[in-house]
Design a protein around this nucleic acid. Structure first.
Length: 426
RNA sequence: GUGGCUGUAGCUCAAUGGCAGAGCAUCGCACUGUGGAUGCGAGGGUUGUGGGUUCGACCCCCAUCAGCCACCCCA
């Protein structure tokens, strides 16, 4: 191959088969979102850098956003996340929006990261938030939506688990251990890193930051305590909702889940491939998001799921749709040069009747045309040769069932609908 | 941004420093009114790119780009 201009690093080309996967995700998460009464929204793909500088932390803007000057000299960024945009949109119309808001979105985002498996520089993300209520039930609803999505794509609780914790509970538990308030944020970071360090290093790090030996022992006991949530009234209510919604089996308490983001103030959760440990989505409860961009305080809970990692996981479990097929489509074959125009005419009539129709664009041998239909996943092939043409007939061949019948051309659309209704089997 | 591994046909991969190959896929033919099989055949390569060492480089060295892995980060 010579001199093909390469694509931008970390971007993906969406061939029809890839596009089918992307649309499958979009369709599925839309269905789940809408079943819970959430409304779709979106913001601009370009934002002023100030929007993120105000909030998300230095790392995001300085290291991981695509930033460039526009012709007027303003610093513009390709959006690396949606939450600040959401906060602004809510703040701008805070007086007129009816809370609680239930909003979702699916669109492209860009982060200037080093690409690897499950991580690209251009990706799609599902964002879904419930804003305006602060209750364990609201948090549970979002977690339930996660679980419903997993169920909808065929992921089982044995394959993916949503792990939940609560920062307030952890904060209180640390206080009970005698850990001072000023030290607790650093202990959170420590907890967040536990799987990334050796046990010895982790212990050393803990002691170094000022934890006493008995406090460290207490912390370890805390992290290992799978029943810690039972001490929390909020958690009891939270899990009761998940029970009621029938998704309890997807969710489990894990005191080690902290999440990196500073703005989470209560419930935090992330979902992972059980056999791989990589997070496919994450979210939590926040109290101050809207006030951070200048609005009045308004609590909320939400999560974000990228298309890349969930795609990797679905692929791994063989849950991606084998796409490419032109569902329910028909191919009108071309018998010879003289009848080419008749084929186009028939194709046009069938389209008028509501069918998805491909017309072979030139005369060719019948086997070749049938092979083409096969490879394209087109189920029906229509043949009008001299025999049929003389009587205004058409032969409809069902490639899936290997059967065919000949009918009047006017009845072809009807006949195909009839054949479509029958399961293809095979 | 840091460290490491890997780049050979569309795909998966071979080839002691000595003639760049196979399978699958694609296309054609067997097959002028019937598809997934079979057989035969064809096309397809500046070995990621650019330098260097060597009589000679897919192979060794340097750089660069890309993919992957770990870190970082995970909005």
């Amino acid at each position: 191959m010579k001199a093909i201009i390469p694509s931008v690093k970390g971007t993906r080309d969406f061939y029809p088969a890839d596009m089918a996967v992307r649309n499958y995700l979009y369709r599925t998460l839309r269905t789940v979102s809408e079943q819970y009464g959430y409304q779709e929204y979106d913001g601009p793909f370009l934002e002023r850098i100030d929007l993120y500088a105000a909030k998300s932390g230095e790392e995001l803007v300085k290291e991981q956003a695509f930033v460039f000057p526009d012709r007027g000299g303003d610093e513009i960024t390709l959006r690396p996340e949606l939450t600040p945009t959401l906060a602004r949109m809510v703040a701008q119309r805070q007086g007129e929006l009816t809370v609680p808001l239930r909003w979702w979105s699916f669109g492209p985002f860009w982060r200037y990261e080093r690409p690897q498996k499950g991580r690209t520089r251009e990706f799609f993300q599902w964002n879904i938030d419930l804003i305006g209520v602060s209750s364990p039930e609201a948090d549970a609803e979002l977690v339930a939506i996660c679980a419903e999505f997993f169920r909808a794509v065929g992921l089982k609780p044995s394959q993916v688990q949503i792990m939940v914790n609560n920062r307030k509970l952890m904060d209180q538990s640390l206080a009970d251990l005698g850990v001072g308030a000023e030290l607790r944020p650093r202990v959170f970071r420590l907890v967040d890193r536990r799987d990334k360090m050796s046990a010895a290093d982790w212990d050393g790090y803990a002691l170094e930051m000022g934890l006493g030996a008995e406090q460290l022992a207490g912390l370890k006991a805390l992290l290992a305590d799978g029943e810690l949530w039972r001490k929390s009234e909020d958690f009891l209510r939270f899990f009761a909702v998940l029970d009621a919604l029938g998704v309890r089996e997807y969710v489990r308490f894990d005191a080690q889940i902290i999440r990196g983001l500073d703005y989470y103030t209560g419930t935090v959760f992330e979902a992972r491939d059980v056999d791989g440990g990589r997070a496919v989505l994450g979210g939590g409860h926040y109290d101050n998001l809207v006030s951070d961009v200048g609005g009045d305080p308004l609590p909320g809970v939400g999560f974000a799921m990228g298309d890349v990692m969930i795609g990797v996981v679905l692929e791994k479990y063989g849950l991606l749709p084998h796409s490419g097929a032109l569902e329910g489509a028909a191919l009108v074959t071309v018998f010879d040069g003289e009848r080419l125009i008749d084929s186009f005419r028939l194709a046009g009539e069938l389209r008028q009747a509501g069918l998805r129709v491909v017309c072979y664009p030139e005369p060719a041998k019948l086997p070749k045309q049938l092979k083409f239909a096969d490879k394209m996943g087109i189920r029906f092939a229509l043949i009008v040769g001299p025999d049929e043409a003389a009587q205004g007939l058409v032969t409809i061949k069902d490639l899936a069932t290997r059967t065919q019948e000949t009918t009047a051309q006017e009845k072809a659309a009807e006949k195909i609908a009839e054949m479509l209704a029958k399961p293809a089997a095979v």
